[in-house]
Design a protein around this nucleic acid. Structure first.
Lengths: 107, 107
DNA sequence: CTCACTCATAACTCACCGGTTATAGAAATC
DNA sequence: GATTTCTATAACCGGTGAGTTATGAGTGAG
């Protein structure tokens, strides 16, 4: 079976896809055309990546006339943050640089 | 080119590989044989996954006699935590459940 | 109505990746 | 030294996924 966590990790594994998500986080809502302009791949490729991000809950789409606007949904990063922290905790206190990691996460 | 961040995300994308890393985090250092026993895949498959995790800096190996012990290196999760937090920050204050995410990361 | 534009889907190709079995190499045991 | 055990590597296979071009569906403009 395909869990939601699997979907999330797989969505973020591809560099092109991750770059698209990063752009949305930095610059906010964008149309497919705007994203395609600087993505380095074809428009259909961008559409497919956006569909994958949407399936993982990482972006939302909004239709306006003939163009589609995509925006980031950082709430979807929650499970990722939880997982990271959980892994760090399990290994707590065992010859590892846990303190460094936690200090970075606590801002 | 293949950046270190790419390596990290790709290493964690595969469920079998992520499960191996999780086991190491939960139960601590393990031999290849012990990991193989409950991994659900063959020993060579486990060895290859461990090699991928090692390339990403997520595990360390220690040779003792004819067996190899693998242990987690949670410090490698640092960049992952940084990236997550950065993405959340960029989108700060824009119609999103940022507070929820940050509160979860702050323990 | 017609034409142009924006995006998504279809159909296809190609490379890579995760899995296997077979085997090599090193180390412990007999 | 011979044999068994443990792990890594080699060689191979099948599936998947990321890319392409072509096209369809929907919308705005003339």
């Amino acid at each position: 079976m395909e869990t939601q966590t699997d979907l999330l990790f797989r969505a973020l594994a591809d560099p092109t896809r991750r770059a698209l998500f990063e752009r949305l986080c930095r610059e906010g809502e964008q149309t497919v055309g705007a994203l395609t302009a600087t993505a380095g791949v074809s428009q259909p490729a961008v559409s497919k990546h956006l569909a994958a991000l949407k399936a993982a809950g990482l972006v939302a789409d909004r239709h306006e006339g003939r163009q589609t606007h995509y925006s980031p949904r950082t709430a979807a990063l929650g499970p990722l943050a939880d997982w990271t922290k959980e892994m760090a905790r399990f290994w707590e206190g065992r010859f590892d640089a846990l303190e460094d990691l936690l200090s970075r996460m606590d801002q």
